[in-house]
Amino acid sequence: MSNIGADEGFPRVPESEPHRGEIDQPTGTATTGHEWDGIKELNTPMPRWWLWVFYATHVWALVYIVLFPAIPLLKDSTTGLLGWHSRSEVAEEIDTAAVARADQFERIRNLPIEQVADDETLRNLAVRGGESAFKVNCVQCHGADAAGGIGFANLNDDDWIWGGSLEAIEQTIAHGVRHAGDDETRLSEMPAFGRDGMLDREQIAAVTRHVLSLSGAGPADPAGATVFADNCAACHGASGEGNRDVGAPRLSDAVWLYSSDPAAIRAQIHNPKHGAMPSWSQRLDPATVKQLAIYVHSLGGGEEEGSREASAGAID
């Protein structure tokens, strides 16, 4: 031990006299015999309890290794005798929380959605739950901000293709749009006016101008107005106010599903794209669907029951 570091030029205690420690005069403590530029290292004994604490930490570590997951293996780790795992702990906590809230979810499941929304506790729970369910199931199309995109409805605004009341939203989520496997799904199909030769290029251009004029985005176009009245008004309404029963979007407002670009409008008339949405009742339980509906309704555009007319004021 006394020769450690001898090669690095540290002073060494001569092998022949290993115990002839020197006593440091002011402290009366033995030195280790090591000296650096005249500074000598005192050989102060450590407290013995310190040693025991040190050993105790080893015992603790060994016990820990035996009881808890500790040693990483290739894929997994040792499991430990107690079988404890942080994930099972989380799972347990989630279960406990679920049990604690079970009756509230039960009420959400059984009550009509209007009554759920009227109960402050249930509504808060539903908005939170709906938000997380939205992040898992809906953001892929509608975006994290629920603002949608071209072809995907913005859920924040007050323009609803299939209705913005709680019940209408619940219905849309539960059964989807154009979802083949659901009898109650929202169904609508706009004819391909151009592809199927019902309107020619000129007529399509004219009706596009008329559609833009409906929301004040362009000058009036009498020819287009005639085409509109003959071909479009049946579903979209005489002044383009739309019809939620058949899922015909309102054309007289500032919100566009496939953009307000004239080319996009022309393309949509020529050969319309039809978005689809899954029937979520086939994947999620009714309570979750209700929570989703309440969450979407809370984003700011939700309508009261039967307030369609109130918010349907046309734009001049």
């Binding site: 901000d145 924040n156 919100v255």
Partner: peptide, 17 residues
């Protein structure tokens, strides 16, 4: 609100949350 920053409503008015 960060997402969406604002929402255009059907009458062209703009709403912030």
């Amino acid at each position: 609100d960060r997402a969406p920053l604002f929402t255009t409503l059907s009458d062209g008015s703009v709403r912030n949350g």
